[in-house]
């Protein structure tokens, strides 16, 4: 809370930007604070995975038990939902990574100090080094594309290319054609729904926290923090679960 106050002391009022903060460029590629946060989250996850892997034992400790319960539980749930371990082996890594990645960068974004440390640009505005990744639409669109491509590939692999295309382009009857078109539009709309749902929730949470910090910096942010931790978890679950269920719909034979 202290660092947040210092950071915002340089700016009059609340400053909110829809576009990500650019820290610099590597060649022509912009390096944003949300991208750095994503890298930091990846580093955290890799470190945790590496440490856990070194200590894996047939008789598990507390941490290993929790991880086993999470991974084993999700794997079984995916196998049950998709109708077999064959599908779980194929899609579990993507679905679970979506969940754990979103959860990690959402929670990393809530660590006090994130968004407070940074450097000032020429206009005197703070450019934070770290910033919640999901407040960057590029991140959520990226994940939405991953999810979208996974769903389409699952459909093609699951029931075959022509049958899958036949779900959307159907000349058997005028009604079938119309339904196919609606399916196609709703399929494409998922890209927008996926990306903007996550972006909107986390961005709104960040704005809410900024507003509360600005008007009532003591005590009041605590329940908001609790709520945002919950929102971070829920959004991760929703993104992963929706991907799973759309995969299930995609691999079902057309009626």
């Amino acid at each position: 809370m202290f660092f947040t106050a210092v950071a915002h002391a340089a700016e009059p009022g609340i400053s909110v930007s829809l576009s990500p903060y650019v820290l610099g460029y590597i060649g022509v590629v912009p390096i944003t604070s949300t991208l750095v946060t994503a890298w930091f989250s990846i580093l955290l996850l890799f470190s945790f995975a590496w440490l856990l892997r070194r200590r894996l034992a047939l008789v598990p400790g507390h941490v290993q038990s929790l991880v086993e319960m999470g991974i084993g539980g999700v794997y079984d749930y995916i196998a049950e939902t998709l109708g077999g371990k064959k599908y779980a082996d194929r899609y579990f890594p993507i679905i679970f990574t979506i969940f754990i990645f979103i959860l990690t960068f959402n929670w990393v974004g809530l660590i006090p100090g994130v968004g407070a440390f940074g450097s000032y640009d020429e206009s005197g505005s703070l450019i934070p080094w770290l910033y919640p990744s999901a407040t960057d639409i590029n991140m959520t669109i990226g994940l939405a594309i991953v999810s979208f491509v996974t769903i389409q590939l699952a459909g093609v692999i699951g029931i075959g290319l022509w049958k899958y295309i036949g779900k959307f382009i159907n000349f058997s009857s005028p009604l079938g054609f119309a339904i196919g078109l609606i399916e196609l539009v709703s399929e494409l709309a998922r890209l927008i729904a996926f990306s903007f749902r996550l972006f909107g929730n986390i961005f709104a949470g960040k704005v809410l926290l900024l507003v509360v910090f600005f008007f009532a910096p003591y005590i009041a942010p605590i329940p908001i923090y609790g709520y945002e931790i919950f929102v971070g978890l829920i959004q991760a679950v929703v993104f992963a679960i929706l991907t799973l269920f759309f995969i299930r719909v995609a691999i079902e034979e057309p009626h």
């Binding site: 990500p20 590629v29 912009p30 944003t32 991208l35 994503a38 890298w39 990846i42 996850l45 890799f46 995975a49 590496w50 856990l52 892997r53 894996l56 991880v67 086993e68 991974i71 084993g72 579990f92 890594p93 993507i94 679970f96 990574t97 979506i98 754990i100 990645f101 960057d136 590029n138 991140m139 669109i141 990226g142 994940l143 594309i145 991953v146």
Partner: peptide
């Protein structure tokens, strides 16, 4: 940035599959 985030995700999925999912 979108492409970079997709690559990030791919890297993370591959790394976690090797380091965590498969062994567990």
């Amino acid at each position: 940035l979108i492409l970079l985030q997709i690559l990030n995700f791919g890297l993370l999925a591959a790394g976690l599959t090797y380091l965590l999912y498969k062994p567990v």
